[in-house]
Amino acid sequence: MEPFKNLINATTVSSAGQHLQRAWSDFDRPRFEALANHGLDALELKARMLQLADAMRATLPGDFNAACSVLEASLAPPLPLDARGEPEGLTSAQASTGLAGWVIWSMGEFVARHGQHDVPRSLVCLHALTQRSTAEFAIRPFIQQQPQAVWPVLARWANDPSAHVRRLVSEGSRPRLPWGLRLQALVADPTPALPLLRALQDDTSSYVRRSVANHLNDIAKDHPDLVADWVKDHLIQATPERSTLLRHASRSLIKQGHAPTLAAWGLASGLTGRATLSLSAAQAAVGDAIGLRVTLQSTARQPQPLEIDYAVQHVRANGSSSPKVFKGWKLSLAAGEERALDKRHSLKPVTTRTLYPGMHRIELLVNGLALAEATFDLKP
Rank of each mutant, 00 (worst) to 15 (best):
M1Q: 00
K5Y: 03
K5H: 10
K5Q: 07
L7S: 05
A10V: 00
S15C: 03
A16H: 05
G17L: 15
Q21A: 14
F27T: 07
D28M: 09
R31F: 10
A34N: 06
A36V: 11
N37E: 06
H38Q: 14
D41V: 13
R48L: 15
A55R: 12
R57K: 12
A58V: 08
A58N: 10
A76N: 04
P80R: 10
R84F: 12
E88N: 03
S92F: 03
A93C: 06
G98I: 03
L99S: 15
V103Q: 03
W105H: 04
S106L: 10
G108K: 11
G108R: 13
E109A: 15
E109F: 10
E109V: 09
F110Y: 14
H127D: 15
L129T: 04
T130G: 15
T134P: 03
A135R: 14
E136R: 15
Q148F: 02
A155E: 05
A158R: 11
A163F: 08
R167M: 11
L168I: 13
V169H: 06
S170F: 07
S170W: 15
G172S: 08
R176F: 11
P178W: 05
R182Y: 01
Q184N: 09
A185T: 14
L186R: 13
A188D: 14
T191L: 00
L197H: 07
R198K: 13
A199R: 12
A199Y: 00
D202V: 13
D202G: 10
T204L: 08
T204D: 13
D218V: 13
H223T: 11
H223G: 06
H223K: 09
W230G: 04
V231E: 01
R242E: 06
S243Y: 07
L245G: 03
L245K: 06
L246K: 00
A249W: 14
R251S: 08
H258D: 02
P260G: 07
S269H: 10
L271M: 08
R274I: 02
R274S: 09
R274T: 11
A281V: 01
A282G: 11
V286L: 04
G287W: 08
I290K: 05
L292K: 03
L296R: 11
Q297L: 12
P305M: 04
L306I: 07
Q313C: 11
Q313T: 04
V315I: 12
R316A: 14
A317N: 03
S321K: 09
K324D: 00
A334F: 02
G336T: 11
E337H: 05
R339Q: 12
R344E: 13
L347E: 01
P349E: 12
V350N: 00
T351P: 08
R353G: 01
P357E: 06
H360Y: 08
R361E: 15
L365E: 10
L369A: 10
L369D: 09
A372Q: 02
F376M: 00
